[in-house]
Design a protein around this nucleic acid. Structure first.
Length: 360
DNA sequence: TAGTCGTGGAC
DNA sequence: TGTCCAAGACT
């Protein structure tokens, strides 16, 4: 099986930037970026990242706002915050060189069991196996594992089988082969069993249950909510606030707003949220547009308004954020926003009548 | 250990 | 207002 996989990989592996030199820094960045992220999206972010932060030192010395800006849109922003923090730890405690042992890697923020083993094997060619969603799927089909794949028992079996398959000395290629094979051939839906180089070994295929492996526990239904946000212009500048560090979208910027409560219109919600979050009294909410986006289990319709300031800007007291800024448009474009607010910014960027009211 | 953390794309 | 999914980590 391992020989067949390695042969398949040598013929079908994708041309990816971090595979050019396998530098530990490149491998590390790619592994963090690809967590819960599809390959096609990750490549663009990786190239922009490396162009700005070509090495560990440049990352460690960067401002967090710029790190988050380069991550904007990728989601799971703790990955970016932890990456930044870990780079500084490597500078301080490891002489600027990424440690090679899985134990030392595990101690760095943002590096868990998967990523530690991925770096150890792919960058440092150590004989350790990785278990990600692809490996879970391929192995659970090869061995027809019937237990729910996230159960402890199934996880242990997958790890055991993966280690048994691993050809010593070839972990770099083998681990990538297993994952890439899971992504391109042994896919979640419509696996390409016809012509599959492992079909003869596959118990799930033999039993005709390949579509039912791995066994997934059904995810809970999404929750639909409405949110409202307000764009407040004063003296040609727009009020933005930086979210608290430990909350969702930690350290990203946004316009004040929040969830539309029952019995309340989105316009009323904006006025209430402004008072609650900033102490400012605003009124005359004028609809701009609505945007759909989602996060974790929520599906959001974000209602955006322009609002007018009634109170004095000196009365601003932040209650839901760590910092605020009255920003001109070029500054807005440099800040990192969550996806919903980024859609609003993009919309406003194409509205010349709106831009005319704002400082450049 | 179960919940939380984002997002866009495939179907 | 459909469902599922992704090279997981953290608490």
């Amino acid at each position: 099986m391992a020989a067949a996989l390695l042969d398949w990989f040598s013929r079908h592996k994708r041309d990816l930037p971090w595979r050019e030199t396998y530098s530990p820094y490149h491998v590390w960045i790619s592994e963090i970026m690809l967590q819960q992220t599809q390959m096609e999206r990750g490549v663009d972010y990786f190239n922009r990242w490396i162009a700005r932060f070509p090495d560990l030192t440049s990352l460690a010395t960067a401002q967090q706002d710029e790190v988050l800006k380069l991550w904007e849109g990728l989601g799971y922003y703790s990955r970016a915050r932890n990456l930044h923090k870990a780079a500084q730890i490597v500078m301080d405690q490891h002489g600027g060189t990424l440690p090679t042992s899985t134990e030392a890697l595990l101690s760095l923020p943002g590096i868990g069991p998967y990523t530690a083993r991925a770096i150890a094997s792919i960058a440092f060619k150590q004989d350790v196996c990785v278990v990600d969603a692809n490996v879970e799927r391929v192995v659970s089909r090869l061995y027809d594992i019937e237990q729910p794949i996230k159960s402890r028992q199934a996880q242990e079996e997958v790890g055991k089988f993966a280690l048994r398959l691993l050809p010593k000395g070839h972990a770099r290629d083998f681990n990538q082969a297993l994952m890439e094979f899971g992504s391109l051939v042994c896919s979640p839906r419509n696996p390409a069993c016809t012509g599959c180089c492992l079909a003869d070994f596959c118990l799930a295929r033999k039993n005709g249950v390949q579509e039912d492996r791995p066994v997934i526990v059904k995810a809970p239904s999404p929750i639909y909510i409405s949110m409202a946000t307000g764009v407040l212009i004063h003296d040609g500048r727009i009020l933005t606030q930086k979210r608290k560090a430990d909350d969702i979208w930690g350290n990203l910027w946004e316009f004040p707003g929040g969830v539309v409560e029952a019995g309340e219109t989105p316009g009323q919600a904006v006025i209430r949220e402004y008072l609650e979050e900033t102490g400012l009294i605003v009124n005359h909410p004028e609809p701009i547009a609505s945007f759909k986006h989602s996060f974790t289990r929520y599906r959001v319709t974000l209602h955006a308004f322009r609002v007018t300031l009634l109170s004095s800007p000196e009365e601003l007291i932040l209650k839901a954020a760590q910092e605020h800024r009255w920003a001109g448009w070029s500054e807005i474009m440099k800040l990192a926003f969550p996806a919903g607010h980024r859609k609003l910014v993009r919309h406003l960027h194409n509205d010349s009548k709106f831009l005319a009211k704002v400082n450049p």
